[in-house]
C-alpha cells in the first residue's frame, strides 16, 4: 500500500503513470489482464518477464499505440485513456521501440529534428527552419549525446544496427520529456554501447522517470530503483531490485528459466 506521503503526492500532481485495471485483448487472446500499476514522477522502474508476458503491450497501452480494451490510463493525474498517441507525447510522454522504428530515408539529423519539432510549435510550418534557430542547437546536442555526429547527415537506412538503437534513444529524449518508456534499449548493442546507454540513463535529470523493459539484467538492475515482474499478462510481483533478485518464485519463473 502507498504511504501517506505518496498519497499526498498522488492527490497533488498525481502519479506519473497510473494504470487501473487495464486489460488488452487481441481477439479472444488476453495480452494484459487487469493490470494496476503506478509509477511516481521521477521513479525509475524495470518491467521484467518472459517473452509474451505482456510487457510491450503494457507500453503500447500507456502510449496509446494500442489502447486498452478496458481500464484507465492516467498520465500525471490526467486521464489519457482515449487520447491518441501524439496527444500523450505532447504532454511529455516518450518512448523507444523494441525494433527500431525510424525514418529510413531521412538523415539522422532530420530524424532528430522531427522529434524535436514534434513536441514544439510549428509542426505545420511552411517556412524552413534556420540553422540559427534554437531547435537546431538541441538537435546537435542530442546527436552528440548518442555519439552519432559522424553519421549525422547519412540516411538512417545506411546506419549500423547499434547506431539505429542509439538514434531510438535520441528521439525519445527530444523536447522536455517528463516520463520515458524504454523498450529493450540495449538489445543488439555492443558492450561499449551498453556502457554508454547506462551512462545516458543514469545521467538523465532526476525529475525524468522511466519504465525500462530489458532482458539484460546488468543494464536493467543498475539503472532502476524498483522492479515489476510480469507473467502471462499479469503483474505478479513488485519490489526493489534486490528483493526481486532474491525471490525464489522469480528465480524459478524467470531468472532461472535460462533467459538472458
Amino acid at each position: 500500500m502507498s504511504t501517506i506521503a505518496e498519497r499526498i503526492a498522488a492527490a497533488g500532481t498525481g502519479n506519473a503513470i497510473e494504470l487501473r485495471a487495464v486489460s488488452r485483448f487481441f481477439g479472444a487472446l488476453a495480452a494484459l489482464t487487469d493490470v494496476t500499476l503506478s509509477v511516481r514522477p521521477g521513479e525509475r522502474r524495470a518491467v521484467l518477464g518472459s517473452n509474451g508476458a505482456g510487457k510491450t503491450t503494457l507500453l503500447n497501452c500507456v502510449t496509446g499505440d494500442f489502447p486498452p480494451t478496458s481500464g484507465t490510463v492516467r498520465f500525471f493525474g490526467e486521464d489519457v485513456t482515449t487520447l491518441p498517441p501524439h496527444e500523450r507525447i505532447r504532454r511529455g510522454l516518450r518512448r523507444t521501440y523494441q525494433v527500431s522504428l525510424l525514418f529510413q530515408r531521412l538523415s539522422v539529423r532530420d530524424n532528430v529534428y522531427l522529434a524535436c519539432r514534434g513536441v514544439s510549435r510549428g509542426r505545420f510550418s511552411f517556412i524552413r527552419t534556420r540553422a540559427s534557430d534554437a531547435i537546431m542547437q538541441s538537435v546537435t546536442d542530442l546527436i552528440s549525446l548518442v555519439h552519432l555526429e559522424s553519421v549525422a547527415d547519412r540516411p538512417v537506412g545506411e546506419l549500423a544496427h547499434g547506431q539505429q538503437r542509439q538514434l531510438e534513444i535520441a528521439l525519445a529524449l527530444a523536447g522536455a520529456p517528463r516520463f520515458i518508456l524504454f523498450d529493450e534499449p540495449a538489445a543488439g548493442l555492443s558492450p561499449n554501447e551498453r556502457a554508454d546507454l547506462v551512462a545516458i540513463l543514469t545521467a538523465l535529470p532526476t525529475h525524468i522517470g522511466y519504465i525500462i523493459i530489458e532482458h539484460d539484467m546488468d543494464v536493467a538492475l543498475r539503472v532502476v530503483e524498483s522492479v515489476t515482474m510480469m507473467h502471462n499478462g499479469r503483474i505478479f510481483k513488485e519490489g526493489a531490485p534486490r528483493e526481486i533478485e532474491a525471490d525464489p518464485e522469480v528465480q524459478e519463473l524467470y531468472l532461472g528459466g535460462g533467459h538472458g
Partner: peptide, 18 residues
C-alpha cells in the same frame, strides 16, 4: 507498414469466437 511486435501479433491472428 508498421512493424508488428511479438506481443501484438495476436491482434491479427486472434481467435474470434462466435
Amino acid at each position: 507498414m508498421s512493424t508488428v511486435f511479438a506481443d501484438d501479433k495476436a491482434a491479427y491472428g486472434g481467435v474470434r469466437g462466435d
